[in-house]
Each structure stands twice: as C-alpha cells, then as structure tokens.
Simulated assay, not measured.
Amino acid sequence: MDRSGVKPDKADAAGVKDKREGGFLDTVKVVAQALLIALVVRSLLFQPFNIPSGSLIPTLLVGDYLFVSKYAYGYSRYSFPLGLVPFEGRILGAEPKRGDVAVFKLPRDNATDYIKRVIGLPGDTVQMVDGRLFINGRVVERERIGNYRDDEDTAPGTGPEVPMYRELLPGGASHVVIERYGDRGPWDNTPLYKVPEGHYFMMGDNRDNSADSRDMNTVGFVPFDNFVGRAEVLFFSIDGAPAWQLWQWPTAVRWERLFTRIH
C-alpha cells in the first residue's frame, strides 16, 4: 500500500516503463536514420570542404567553405569516407573538363585532399615559359585586368598589389590568376610536360604560390581515380577567425561571397 492507501497498478508501471523504452528506441532510430542520410549525401551528392591555403587566390580564399559535387565525375573508392568501399576504377564516370576546380586525393599518399584547377587533359602538353602558360604548343591568351592586393601573409589591407590576369583556356573556359612575382616566379619556367592517358594536370590560380602538377615530386600528374569531386558553390566565408567564433561574424564574415558559384 502507498501512503494514499491506493495500491500501485503493476500494469500501469509496466506501461510507463514500456513507453520510456519505446521513446529511447525511437530516438536511436531517428539518430541512426539521420546519420545514414548524412552519409549518403556526403558520399553520393555533396561534401563540404574548407580552404586552408591560398593556392587558388583570387578564386578561393583562406577561410572559404564550399560544397563539392561527388556525382560530377562519377564515383571511385575515394568518393567514400576513409575509402571504405574498396573498388578499382570509376562508376558512372564523367571526365573532368578543362577549367574545372576539383578536389582530388594527392597521388603521393592517396589520402590528402588537394584542390586545384584542371589545366591539362590526357594527352596534352603543358609548359610555362616566362610566366605564360602553353597548352599543346600554343600560348594561352591572357588579359591584364588590374592588380590584386595580396594579403595572404600580411595584415588586411597591407599586402602588396600584384598583377592580375584573366586567362582564356582552350575550349572557352576563363578564370582569373595572380602573379605574385610577376613572370619571374619559381615555376614560371618549366620543362615540357606530357600528360599521360587517364591523368590530369592541375594548377593553382595563385601561380607563384601553389604546389601543383608543375612539381612532380609533390603533386605531379593526377590519376582520374583520385578525383573526389567538382567545386560548385561557396556557402560560407570568414576572414581571420574560426567559423565557430560567432561573435566575430559581423565583421569577419565575407558576406558578399556567400552562396556564390565557383568558376
């Protein structure tokens, strides 16, 4: 008997217990379903990345956050987290186009994520001569469009102004590049590269500050299987502060870059 003189109903107590257990199991199911959906979206549709270095300035800045489409080039084992689906080659493959900005696994370790622009296709020859890009023996057209203040290694607004050009690649794709050291940078004169079949030649838009396919010991030619996806859109961008510092957002977020397409 309890203090009220009413004997507790065992069936009611069991019902309360069942409801609690059912509620916990329902929560577990919802969490599991959410994780499964997130895994599918990340593996098959879009994966978020952030930019930690300035190799693609001015197209991508340090502190940019972007979505990469996983389906753009089909799927390889590198499309899945930690390479958990081990298979060779690609399925539903679509070849990268010249001018795409793409994420790939560094061939040296097949693990580190790099992001560069597709410059050379399989069978192409690529060379830099006095700062000018040559593809298949022909110089790539470029137009001086002004200067770019390069604040990558300095306080905002204090960096040097460097030449900025618009390049027009064979096939019609265009993009903007900067030349930190003019046309006399460390990779402005290179050997003639012949891109092997099934591989691509990748370069950064910050031509004098990019570890890319010009350096055979660091990057070299990138196999098609190593491609993760194509950079599509910026969804967030912050300058000089971690994204989690919400109190910095009013002044640090680059509002004008949010939800812009990547070209």
Rank of each mutant, 00 (worst) to 15 (best):
N206L: 01
D215R: 15
R184K: 15
H263G: 10
F221E: 09
H263S: 12
A155E: 15
R180I: 14
V222K: 07
D151F: 11
R214E: 07
Y193K: 00
G198E: 14
G204M: 09
Y165V: 03
E197C: 00
P186H: 05
N147V: 11
A241K: 13
D150Q: 00
G159Y: 05
S213L: 13
G159L: 04
N206D: 07
W187F: 15
G171P: 05
F259Y: 14
L169V: 05
G229M: 02
K194V: 15
A155W: 10
M216T: 09
D151E: 03
G157Q: 09
R254S: 06
W249D: 06
E232D: 05
N226P: 02
P186D: 10
S237L: 04
D239H: 12
I178Q: 09
L169W: 08
W247V: 00
T190L: 11
F201Y: 14
P163Y: 13
A211T: 10
D212R: 07
H175G: 01
R230N: 05
R261E: 15
G171H: 01
P223R: 10
W255H: 08
L192W: 03
A173Q: 06
R254G: 03
R180C: 00
W244T: 00
Q248D: 08
E232F: 05
G171S: 04
D215I: 08
Y193G: 00
T154G: 01
Y200K: 11
T158H: 01
G185T: 09
V219A: 08
Q248T: 02
R254E: 09
P163E: 13
V228S: 10
R149P: 02
P191G: 12
R230V: 06
P196T: 09
N147H: 13
T251S: 14
A231C: 13
W244R: 03
P163H: 14
P250F: 02
N209R: 03
M202N: 12
F259P: 01
F201V: 03
M203V: 01
V222Q: 06
R149S: 04
I262T: 08
P191Y: 07
A243W: 14
R257P: 01
R261C: 01
G220H: 08
A231F: 06
E143N: 03
V177L: 09
K194P: 00
G172A: 04
L246N: 00
P170G: 02
K194C: 11
A243D: 04
Q245T: 04
W244A: 05
E179Y: 14
A155N: 07
T218E: 06
R149V: 08
G185A: 10
D208H: 12
P196C: 06
Y165E: 09
S213I: 13
R184S: 15
G157K: 11
G220L: 11
H175I: 00
G146D: 07
T260E: 12
Y148C: 01
G204K: 09
F201I: 02
S210M: 05
M202L: 15
V219T: 10
S213V: 09
G229H: 03
A252Y: 00
W244D: 04
F224I: 02
P223V: 04
T260M: 03
G182K: 10
A173W: 05
F259G: 02
T251K: 14
L169P: 03
W247N: 03
I262L: 11
F259Q: 07
V177K: 10
G159I: 03
Y148V: 01
V177M: 08
E179A: 12
